[in-house]
Nucleic acid binder design. Structure first.
Length: 491
RNA sequence: GCCCCCAUCGUCUAGUGGACUAGGACGCGGCCCUUUCAAGGCCACGACCGGGGUUCGAAUCCCCGUGGGGGCACCA
């Protein structure tokens, strides 16, 4: 396949979300697989809706995901600028080309008038559409009004006869009756282009070979191919992706659904992912597989995806978001990281809890907690006690199952006696010693080890006991046991 | 209201007319392992939206329903 040039072209109006991330990912994969380029273009032609900081969030999000672009607003490139508000003259020039060809015309209708017409049409149960008032204005009159400084827009002159056939890579030919199409605004009265003009011009100028975008564009797809054909340009390959549905599969994600997701530690916004303990690898893998049909073996790194990706195996049907699957992919990738890598990724989650992390200790606990982590921040729940001087177990947790506090204290004392007798507390020495005590005492391993676990870690659920004691160290382990005995005797 | 798109286990999907007793993954249930929690191993449950065609033969092609989604702006 020839090198593909693809682009991610978001508008800076809100947070980078899952849908955008997946669109960017597919575009990135196609470009990288074919040895082409992936670029970022900011579609900020709606000045009123542009949100400060949104562009930076998009850039940060793509970087975090690992989707590095070859050309973009902050790094430049052969076809700079990559921010549409900075390309105003280019669109003006192209609008002029279309007007000269008789495929576009100035329109002097006011928004108020258009709105009124729309309401009347709706009332009459007609399809709301431009009524064509300015479509056939005499050229000299139009010119005069422009010269007079009358505010105007530029509209596309859509053929009113015949049909338009647009080809989507995933759906095949989509035939539309031209009567359904409208004379859309190309240049707004503020002089900036609408998406319809800007995106077509930029995709052509920037030599985009494959337009990968959301299926919300399917409605204006026929318009877009008409604009391109009016210019006489070649069309890119069009790939309209499916939309994401809420987990129930009933409709798109709403604000309420997002809040719901946040409640159980998930999010559809990329900016939240890191804080929630998700890895770029997990998020990417998860997002990739919603809409990309892979037969088997679906745990993949970015590089493996680049090798295996194909726009032919994308699916056109909507996909319900499944956060449990995100958990799965995240956990799976965590288990794939090297110890050093995982240590570096975990450290911030400990330090943000105010813990002082000893790097040597951190390395040692990785094998103990790695396969217990679903998200990176789970490391705190499992391993915070490694970095504390003392733990504060709940008294009731120290009482062994089936025993009372008094008896538990006796057991704890016996354990302390045994452990004190060891010159070093490690897995190899402590386990046999305590296990033989368990056997002769007639208690269950669960009772004795459970008590020791709570005493040592302060938790009922923890990494393996003896390995943990070894890392905590002899002195600290003994001190924690003594403390546990004190607590038990006070009950 | 009009237009467009989509339709396989609960969810993501494989399947491109015979290799389908419809495969995989997540989840769910069970068992094994086991000092807790995980991980791992094994097993089970579980789907071609409905109706008509076409064909020797249809999950696969066509039509009609139904359901779901998207669009109908000087927003993208």
């Amino acid at each position: 396949m020839k090198p593909a040039r693809t682009r991610f072209a978001p508008s800076p109006t809100g947070h980078l979300h899952l849908g955008g991330a997946r669109t960017a990912l597919y575009a990135y994969l196609l470009a990288k697989q074919t040895g082409g380029q992936f670029l970022l273009r900011i579609e900020d032609t709606d000045v009123k809706r542009t949100v400060a900081g949104a562009e930076q969030e998009i850039i940060d999000g793509l970087r975090w995901l690992g989707l590095d672009y070859d050309e973009g607003p902050d790094i430049g490139g052969k076809f700079a600028p990559y921010r549409q508000t900075e390309r105003r003259a280019i669109y003006q020039r192209h609008a002029k080309v279309l007007m000269d060809k008789g495929r576009a015309y100035p329109c002097f209708c006011t928004p108020e008038k258009l709105e009124k017409t729309r309401q009347e049409q709706t009332k009459r149960k007609e399809n709301p559409r431009y009524d064509g008032t300015c479509r056939n204005l005499a050229p000299d009159e139009a010119e005069k009004r422009i010269a007079n400084g009358e505010t105007h827009t530029v509209r596309f002159k859509m053929d009113q006869e015949g049909t338009t056939t647009a080809h989507d890579h995933l759906r095949g030919d989509i035939v539309t009756d031209n009567k359904q199409l409208n004379d859309q605004v190309l240049i707004k009265s503020d002089g900036l282009p609408t998406y319809h003009l800007a995106a077509m011009v930029d995709d052509h100028e920037m030599q985009i070979t494959h337009v990968i975008r959301g299926s919300e564009w399917l409605g204006s797809f026929p318009l877009h191919v008409n604009i391109i054909r009016a210019f006489g340009w070649d069309e890119p390959t069009w790939v309209h992706l499916s939309v994401f549905l809420k987990p129930s599969g009933k409709g798109k994600m709403s604000k309420r659904d997002s809040a719901e997701a946040n409640k159980d530690g998930h999010s559809v916004f990329i900016k939240d992912m890191e804080e929630l303990g998700f890895t770029p690898e997990g998020v990417i893998n998860w997002a990739a597989l919603m809409g990309w049909g892979v037969a088997e073996d679906d745990v993949m790194t970015l590089n493996q995806m680049i090798e295996r990706f194909s726009i032919d195996s994308l699916t056109p049907s909507p996909a319900a978001i499944n956060f449990q699957k995100l958990d799965h992919f995240n956990a799976t990738h965590i288990r794939l990281f090297s110890t050093e890598d995982l240590a570096a990724r975990l450290k911030p989650y400990f330090t943000r809890e105010g813990l002082t992390v000893n790097d040597g200790t951190l390395q040692k606990i990785i094998p103990l907690i790695r396969e217990r982590l679903t998200t990176l921040d789970d490391c705190v729940a499992f391993g915070a006690f490694f970095f504390k001087d003392a733990v504060s177990p709940a008294p009731e947790d120290l009482v062994a199952k089936g025993l009372d506090a008094k008896r538990s204290a006796e057991v704890a004392k016996k354990c302390l006696e045994i452990l004190s007798g060891l010159s070093s507390i490690d897995h190899a020495t402590a386990e046999p010693a305590l296990r033989s005590y368990v056997e002769e005492s007639g208690l269950s391993p669960n009772q004795v080890f459970g008590l020791l676990r709570v005493a040592t870690t302060g938790q009922k659920v923890s990494p393996p006991l003896f390995e943990s004691m070894e890392i905590v160290g002899r002195e600290k382990s003994l001190r924690r046991l003594e403390n546990a005995i004190e607590i038990l005797e006070k009950i």
